[in-house]
C-alpha cells in the first residue's frame, strides 16, 4: 500500500526541511550581525517541504507572477490536494463523504443521503452496518468536487488490498470500492479493500512504526494491524502514594501516565497535536455479551466486582481503594 507523501519514520534523512533551516544553525555570538539588513530574506525560512503536502507552513501554490493560482475545472488537481487544507476529487460515479464537507464542485453532481431510493443497496455493500450510514452523503455524478473541513490538514491515503483503522471524526470521504466497518475498538472505523480515502487531522499526519507509545489524543489511526493496547506508567498507579496521587491529583500528574502502545508490523498515524477532532456518531453495536463498547457486561458473573472484594477488617469498606493500594 502506498501512503501519502511521507517517508516512513526512522529512515535516515527523514525530515526534508532539516538542512534548509538557517535559524537552527549556530548563532553568531558577537555583535549579532544584521542579516543582510532590514527584514532578512531567510532563504527557506519557511521550510521547503517538497515531499510533504500539509505542513502548516507549506506555502500556498503561487504562479510565477506571485499571485494566487486560479483554478478552473481543467487545472484542478485530480484526486489530489489543492493545498494542505483542500482536496479535489475527480468524480465519476459515486463517492461517500461526511455530511457538510463539500465546499465546491464543478459538473453535474447530486448529493443524496444514503437510503435515498436506489442508494439503499449501498448500505449493504459499503457500510455493513446500517446504524451510522445516516451520517454519510453519497455524491453521485461527474465533475470535480472540493472537500475541506474547518481548515484542518487533509491527506489522502491509497489502500491496495489493505486495511486501515481511523478515528471516526477524522475520516472525511472515501471511495465506494472500500468498505467501511466499525472497528472493535469503540470510536474507530476500519476501511478494507482497495481505493482512496481522505482523512483530516489537526496538524500534518506523521507516520511511525511500532513499537511506539502514543498519546491517546494524538492518535489518528493505524494500518496493517499493529496491535493496540493500553499502557500505564505504573509508578504512579502503585502503592499508597500512587493511589493518593491518582485520586486527589496531589503531587501532580504529568498528564502522560496513560498511552496507547502499538506492537507488531504496520504503521501508526499521528496528528501533530493532541487536540482531538470531534468524533462522529458511528452507531451502536448490539448490546450483547462480549462486545466492547456495547454497554453489556462482559461476563455475567463479573457484574459487580466491588461487591466481591473482601471487606478488610479495620479499614472499613474502601471499595476499590483496597485493590489500588494492594491490600
Amino acid at each position: 500500500m502506498s501512503y501519502p507523501p511521507q517517508s516512513p519514520y526512522g529512515q535516515p534523512g527523514y525530515p526534508p526541511q532539516q538542512g534548509g533551516l538557517p535559524q537552527q544553525g549556530g548563532y553568531p555570538q558577537p555583535g549579532y550581525p544584521p542579516q543582510q539588513g532590514g527584514y532578512p530574506p531567510q532563504p527557506g525560512g519557511y521550510p521547503q517541504q517538497p515531499q510533504q503536502y500539509g505542513g502548516p507552513q507549506a506555502p500556498l501554490p503561487q504562479t510565477a507572477a506571485g499571485g494566487p493560482v486560479v483554478h478552473d475545472v481543467t487545472t484542478l488537481p485530480s484526486n489530489d490536494n489543492v493545498n494542505p487544507y483542500a482536496f479535489s476529487v475527480d468524480l465519476n460515479g459515486q463517492y461517500f463523504l461526511q455530511k457538510g464537507k463539500m465546499v465546491a464542485y464543478y459538473g453535474n453532481i447530486q448529493f443524496h443521503g444514503i437510503g435515498h431510493g436506489p442508494l439503499d443497496a449501498l448500505i449493504g455493500r459499503s457500510f455493513h452496518s446500517p446504524l451510522h450510514a445516516a451520517d454519510w452523503v453519497v455524491a453521485e455524478g461527474q465533475g470535480k468536487m472540493i472537500l475541506a473541513d474547518r481548515a484542518f490538514d487533509l491527506n489522502s491515503y491509497d489502500l491496495e488490498d489493505g486495511n486501515l483503522t481511523v478515528r471516526s471524526g477524522n475520516l472525511l470521504a472515501f471511495d465506494p470500492r472500500l468498505s467501511l466497518k466499525q472497528s472493535i475498538i469503540p470510536g474507530f472505523l476500519t476501511l478494507i479493500g482497495t481505493g482512496k480515502f481522505v482523512a483530516a487531522s489537526n496538524g500534518p499526519v506523521h507516520f511511525v512504526e511500532p513499537p511506539i507509545r502514543v498519546d491517546p489524543q494524538a492518535l489518528v489511526g493505524w494500518a496493517d494491524c499493529p496491535s493496540p493496547c493500553h499502557h500505564y506508567d505504573h509508578s504512579y498507579m502503585r502503592g499508597v502514594l500512587g493511589g493518593i496521587r491518582q485520586l486527589t491529583g496531589l503531587g501532580g500528574v504529568s498528564g502522560e501516565e496513560h498511552q496507547f502502545e502499538f506492537i507488531g508490523a504496520g504503521q501508526v498515524l499521528l496528528q501533530s497535536s493532541e487536540k482531538l477532532m470531534a468524533d462522529i456518531n458511528i452507531g451502536h453495536v448490539p448490546a450483547e455479551a462480549g462486545i466492547p463498547g456495547a454497554g453489556a457486561p462482559s461476563q455475567a458473573g463479573r457484574q459487580q466486582p466491588q461487591q466481591q472484594l473482601p471487606n478488610i477488617p479495620g479499614l472499613g469498606n474502601l471499595g476499590d481503594l483496597g485493590r489500588r493500594f494492594g491490600l
Binding site: 511506539i212 507509545r213 502514543v214 501532580g252 500528574v253 504529568s254
Partner: peptide, 18 residues
Amino acid sequence: QRGAMIAYSGQVTFTPNM
C-alpha cells in the same frame, strides 16, 4: 510542558515536576 508528548519509543519516563 505537561501533556505535550505525542508519542515515544524506547524506555522513557515522564515525571511531573512540582
